[in-house]
Design a protein around this nucleic acid. Structure first.
Lengths: 332, 332
DNA sequence: TTGAAAGCGTTACCAT
DNA sequence: ATGGTAACGCTTTCAA
């Protein structure tokens, strides 16, 4: 077996208890013995057995993070934000990717719960009922990030309603009146529903009645973007389209160009998310940028400060980042 | 505290030992009592405390995975492959993102080692000396994936030398004689060195003496791709460039187009990696595709079968995937 | 300042 | 087929 505090205690002529106190800088001890202990620990190549410590302390500082395997790259940003704060506040992150296969999901979450994590962060997860029940059964603190599940779980996300207003306002100001929404046509996930409603409300606020045919596609995939152009045909019936995820917008852009359209002249695009992907296209995409790192940060810090009540909703900022994918009708 | 096997034992009128055996399907017991135990466990909402089990068994089935925070998206593919096999073979993955800050790295790895993982997979990591020493000190099985560190750690990766031959051969066959290599100009990481050498050797095999000026850039970033075009100016002195990572190739493509060049007519590009990104560009990039999922799979399966000797090297296949970014001089 | 000992939840050996 | 019990490594209370 590996080195334990007992080994150190023996070598130092002390008791395990003293070694434990010294190594954790907890309780009283003399600087002299502390120095000796640290030296011995170092020389022996000691590593604490955190599992044993957790067991003894009946609690852990491990936070489980559930990430969908088919995650868009914004998940990485959220994790980055978490990682940073976890380091500061001395938490450990147990990042777990979950499959779409429900049976695997269950097993994965089971093993997470077996680790006695003290909170679980769900990244952009639409929990199927079975998983959800499992999670509720266990008494761990849950936090939903970048998605909304129900009002029993605290939420950290962008204000999707506001976001749609920002986009529609931007397009309206540039002279657009015919605006499509691609990728949020369904009622689930709830985020899609909210965006859809925000889009409709924002149009209404400008005196525009929305055209239900122009809310199209429900998956956040590249293919959805491609298919959309195919579906509407050329010339397109609208002047602008909102892509409900960066990858959708890239699909829209490519398909439009492949169909001989010029972006932004024949089609303007505003993308939702604002990850690095939007900077890689030509033209560069105008986007509404979400603050994913902040979401990750807030998840941990608010957990730490225990400010997460059951139905808490924490919004992070969103802002329009200009690219070259929106035509300005005012200049013509 | 939460429910334990003791609670179940009490309620079932059994000993903890029996409950343990039943729940782990280990040893002998009657189907009847088993059924009862399972029912009670279910009704009580029992979750195994895996930390306690690990402690008792003096071993864990947890595999730590070190991923650079600035990871290219191929890391996701590798993880996906691992995840799949981990599920099959009943291992747990402890995925940890590591920072570039050395102090944070150390702390992160310390906490990994404190979890008594029984192996650590390093994804595309160029371990700085301090980290490396730490890792060596602990007696865990190390595996380097998609990178080469030294010959004391088993490696799972593409055959980078062969890969460069495949690319050069492809370009040569299409009539290219002036070929640049962007993004592998340095001696570290070792992968860069191997690619550089493979490139030189492959050219030599075709009777071409390489031009040292055409090996340029060392970071795997978008900016490197952009800068390369700027650096060489137009018209470019070569007809083809190999981007040593997809993101570099996208940079090359965009910068070339921004400079008024037409790809592939004025510049042909072959990208190394072949992730989804190469499908999102116009024209679509011709790439050499690495089998990242297989790397993840092999990491776990070979670990499981204990076939990893100290200096083992396992290569996964690479193959050219045709896009529209390579000009064929034979057709003119 | 330090030590002894109980206990965390599980497993495995040895009995029964 | 089932039970008793020691052991895993660490923390913590209480006593010295």
């Amino acid at each position: 077996m590996a080195i334990t505090i007992k080994d150190i205690a023996n070598k130092a002529g002390l008791s395990p208890a003293s070694v434990s106190r010294i190594l954790n800088n907890h309780g009283r001890f003399s600087a002299e013995t502390a120095k000796k202990v640290h030296e011995i620990a170092e020389s022996l190549g000691y590593f604490k057995n955190q599992s044993a410590a957790d067991l003894s302390q009946k609690q852990s500082r491990v936070v489980g993070v559930l990430v969908p395997v088919a995650h868009t790259n914004f998940a990485d940003e959220i994790i980055k934000g978490m990682q940073h704060t976890a380091y500061e506040l001395n938490y450990e992150l147990l990042i777990t990717f979950i499959d779409t296969d429900e049976k695997k999901q269950i097993q994965t979450v089971q093993s997470l719960l077996s680790r006695k994590v003290f909170a679980i962060f769900m990244l952009a997860i639409d929990a199927p009922t079975a998983l959800f029940e499992l999670l509720n059964h266990a008494n761990v603190q849950l936090v939903s990030i970048s998605n909304q599940l129900n009002n029993k779980i605290p939420i950290i996300s962008s204000n999707n309603d506001l976001m749609m207003h920002q986009i529609v306002d931007h397009l309206y100001q540039k002279g657009h009146r015919k605006i499509a929404l691609i990728g949020s046509s369904e009622r689930y996930p709830i985020v899609a529903k909210i965006r859809r409603k925000g889009y409709i409300d924002a149009l209404a606020a400008k005196g525009i009645t929305y055209n239900p045919d122009w809310i199209w596609g429900f998956q956040n995939t590249y293919q959805t973007g491609l298919d959309a152009i195919q579906h509407f045909g050329t010339p397109l019936p609208f002047t602008a389209a909102i892509g409900s995820a960066d990858i959708i917008s890239v699909g829209l852009l490519n398909a439009a160009q492949d169909a001989g359209l010029v972006v932004p002249n024949d089609l303007s695009i505003v993308s939702v998310d604002g990850t690095e992907l939007t900077q890689l296209t030509r033209p560069i995409l105008t986007t509404i940028e979400q603050d994913f790192q902040m979401m990750g940060h807030l998840a941990l810090s608010s957990l730490h400060e225990k400010t997460l009540t059951e139905n808490a909703i924490i919004y992070t900022d969103t802002k329009i980042v200009l690219g070259d994918s929106v035509r300005d009708f005012n200049n013509y």
